[in-house]
Design a protein around this nucleic acid. Structure first.
Length: 718
RNA sequence: GCGCGCGUAGCUCAGCUGGUUAGAGCGUUGCAUUGACAUUGCAGAGGUCCCUGGUUCGAAUCCAGGCGUGCGCACCA
């Protein structure tokens, strides 16, 4: 065995073998850990989308979570890190639709729901296999025996149960409201999935009777029969008490009603505007406030309706706009044109298509309706609940500056639109028959019932993740043992999408929190701090980096010098440096091995004062590293270990002991041997969460160690 | 408009609750090394710690203002 300490360290030869030994030995299962403290420690893995492969951001997430997991396992907590993947509904469907069209020039409607879903599932399965392989490559010590999928049968049960309970409590309702409609994907998307993109366009000033109104979208103006002004705008005071005016509009004379509303920004444009309540959220709200008519102008495919007149009906808005502008000009209704107008347009962040607001009947979660949570007798709304649990410290967010961001988001939160007109996802557990409506976990008895064709927003099922994975709605032992989970570690970019929704769901369904601590990591960027993207060509595949430098080195790079919440610029030269470090660990171990292998070091010999000093420093290190990990300062813990190992242990202590090892008395020699072995083995333990592979490999090759390092107890800091 | 972050060596970045000669990786200069390691060691060069003012015995670190830069949210008729 000991001949294996060859040089230099070869991660490629080592890592897969070590991982297999851990996995096959059942070492990731909480039941098999040392479990000496009587405490549990649990985390769920934020399930990666089955839309492709993992990126370096995932790698960072895996590294951080694995460090916490290994630390707690070694410390003696009954430790569960539960893995899984996310069906990602719209993202996955869009991906498959894109491929389908590219390769076969077909749409999902050409295939039909059943066949199309078969294709998506095949794709998801393939993605799943790739992803779980990558998770293994990173060294993640997840309990594969508990692996879950957001769209598997058990999770389906949880989703239906959750839906039914919320429906019965009237927290889920069906209503006609303005939603974000994606005409290409033919589905709604939630407010958080809409992204604002800057676009250069043209701004038209139109003559609207005595007023001038501005618009970037002339094609929506056909039905505009309300003109809105600010009630305090003195420029238009002559109209303050006037209700109606006659004017010439695109398709002839109309009667317009003058509305006064404070939503108008007096400083923008001319301070007067017309509204299109069917296709704009702000306009919709104004119309609601004043009880105005709402008329649809654009259909769900982006084509103009009959309100546009025979001339334009059926035309797609893209084609119609120049024609409409032409007509407006002919009629003398265009007063001014601003060609250099930049504004933000709404696009679907899951597919990049323009969003057209529409009024549509959809399912919503009411965030303002009071309910009584389980285990409680006071009423709260979901909004209040989400705020309370963070405000009163039940949930701690690291870094804490994100608490402010979280509160701000809650303050702006509107009812959550949860229905999607796509096929891949959890179909809504509601059935209809002759005007009757039934909501249940199972389909109703008897024939003639038709299930709602819509599916649920992917975040609805992810919101249940901390407990649906543990067996809920059944009262399982896992649920009792591991919920609430201790830590939820994820990127700050999904604070709203996911964290907030988990808090919401867990609050209503369990009257509890899903986790005690939220650890947010930053975005992984390229060396120059640019976002990694396929189009820039700067996206790095973690597998390539592992191949080149080893998973230990990559993990170290993702941890050292990267405090919670800070973006990290991934630098290859630094990864190389950490590969050197792994090699340093290897070589220092070789040295200790060579000089101790024939010596029995089971009992502590009489130690020289110098060695006692070294061991005292070692205790300091242990104390420091432990406390930094407890405080989630992994970046400091790893840096301290790096420095101690290289510049204290290797550069000083080893150098100093050489003289004694080669020329000292037996007593001096034995003291040095024992000390070196002690320092090395302690460092291997402390380093193991950060660099699991090289440390486990070395541990197995040293003669004075027992068992596997993964289950070796964490040292007490005296 | 509201909020948040960052500005430290040529480059990319650490520096916790203020305390001695300010650190890392890579790069760079010189020397050394045949017995853990050239994936090495030692030594060196290189910094007005963005600017101004304040608090303090003492500030890269705390406070205020400014400049630069990045991000989130809202609005965008």
């Amino acid at each position: 065995m000991s001949d294996k300490l060859e040089k230099p360290y070869n991660p490629q030869e080592t890592e897969d073998r070590i991982y297999a030994a851990w996995e096959e030995g059942g070492h990731f299962k909480p039941e098999n850990g040392p479990n000496t403290t009587g405490e549990t420690f649990s985390m769920v893995l934020p399930p990666p989308n089955v839309t492709g492969v993992l990126h370096t951001g995932h790698a960072a997430m895996l590294a951080i979570q694995d460090i916490l997991t290994r630390y707690h396992r070694m410390k003696g907590d009954k430790t569960l890190w539960l893995p899984g993947t996310d069906h990602a509904a719209i993202a996955t469907q869009a991906r498959v639709e894109k491929d389908l069209y590219k390769v076969e020039k077909k749409t999902r409607h050409d295939l039909g729901r059943e066949e199309f879903l078969r294709r998506v599932e095949a794709f998801a399965q393939e993605s799943h296999d790739t992803i779980t392989g990558q998770i293994r490559k990173m060294g993640s010590s997840v309990d594969w025996s508990r692996e879950a999928y957001t769209l598997d049968e058990k999770r389906e049960q949880a989703v239906r149960e959750a839906f039914k309970r919320m429906y019965d409590a009237e927290l889920i309702y069906k209503g006609s409201r303005i939603v974000n409609w994606d005409p290409r994907l033919q589905t709604t998307v939630s407010d958080d999935e809409v992204e604002r993109k800057e676009e250069k366009g043209t701004f038209y000033y139109l003559k609207y009777g005595p007023f001038t109104i501005g618009t970037a979208r002339p094609e929506t103006k056909f039905g505009d029969k309300y003109v809105v002004m600010h009630p305090q705008d003195d420029r238009y005071k002559e109209y303050k008490h006037k209700q109606e005016i006659e004017l010439e509009w695109i398709n002839g004379p109309i009667t317009a009603t003058i509305i006064k509303d404070e939503a108008v920004d007096m400083d923008f444009g001319t301070g007067v505007m017309t509204i299109t309540p069917w296709h704009d959220a702000t306009d919709f709200e104004i119309a609601e406030r004043h009880g105005l008519d709402k008329e649809q102008v654009i259909d769900f495919n982006g084509k103009l309706l009959s309100i546009a007149g025979e001339e334009f009906e059926g035309l797609h808005i893209k084609k119609a706009r120049p024609l409409i502008v032409e007509k407006l000009k002919e009629k003398g209704l265009v007063e001014k044109v601003d060609e250099n107008y930049t504004h933000n347009i709404a696009v679907n962040s899951r597919g990049g298509e323009l969003i057209e607001p529409q009024i549509k009947e959809q399912w919503f979660v009411n965030v303002n309706k009071p309910f009584v949570p389980p285990n409680s007798d006071t009423e709260v709304t979901l909004k209040q609940w989400m705020r309370n649990v963070v405000e009163n410290g039940l949930i701690q967010i690291i870094p804490d500056r994100y608490e402010k961001v979280y509160f701000h988001w809650i303050d702006n939160l509107r009812d959550w639109c949860i229905s999607r007109q796509i096929w891949y996802g959890h179909q809504i557990p509601v059935w209809y028959k002759d005007g009757e409506i039934y909501c249940g976990v199972e389909a109703p008895e008897g024939g003639g019932w038709e299930q709602d064709p819509d599916t649920l927003d992917t975040w609805f099922s992810s919101g249940l993740w901390t407990f649906s994975t543990l067996g809920w709605p059944e009262e399982t032992e896992d649920l009792n043992l591991y919920h609430p989970t201790n830590v939820l570690e994820t990127g700050y970019d999904i604070l709203f999408f996911w964290i907030a929704r988990m808090i919401l769901m867990t609050g209503f369904l369990l009257g509890d929190i899903p986790f005690r601590t939220v650890y947010l990591h930053g975005m992984v960027r390229d060396e120059k701090g640019r976002k990694m993207s396929k189009s820039l060509g700067n996206a790095t595949d973690p597998l390539d980096l592992i191949e080149k430098y080893g998973a230990d080195a990559l993990r170290f790079e993702l941890i050292v010098g990267s405090p919670p919440g800070n973006d990290l610029n991934l630098t290859e030269s630094r990864i190389k440096g950490y590969k050197h470090f792994a090699n340093k660990v290897w070589n220092a171990s070789r040295f200790v091995h060579m000089n101790t292998k024939y010596t029995d070091l089971k009992t502590e010999p009489k130690l020289l004062p110098q060695d006692k000093t070294y061991l005292k420093e070692l205790d300091e290190l242990t104390k420091d590293v432990t406390s930094e990990i407890e405080k989630f300062n992994l970046y400091l813990a790893s840096e301290k270990l790096y420095h101690y190992f290289w510049h204290t242990f290797a550069d000083n202590i080893i150098e100093e002991t050489k003289e004694r090892l080669y020329n000292g008395t037996d007593e001096e020699k034995l003291s040095a041997q024992w000390t070196l072995n002690k320092i090395l083995t302690t460092n291997l333990i402390l380093l193991h969460p950060f660099m699991p592979f090289v440390t486990e490999e070395v541990w197995g090759l040293l003669p004075n160690t027992d068992g596997m390092l993964i289950h070796t107890p964490w040292p007490d800091a005296r």
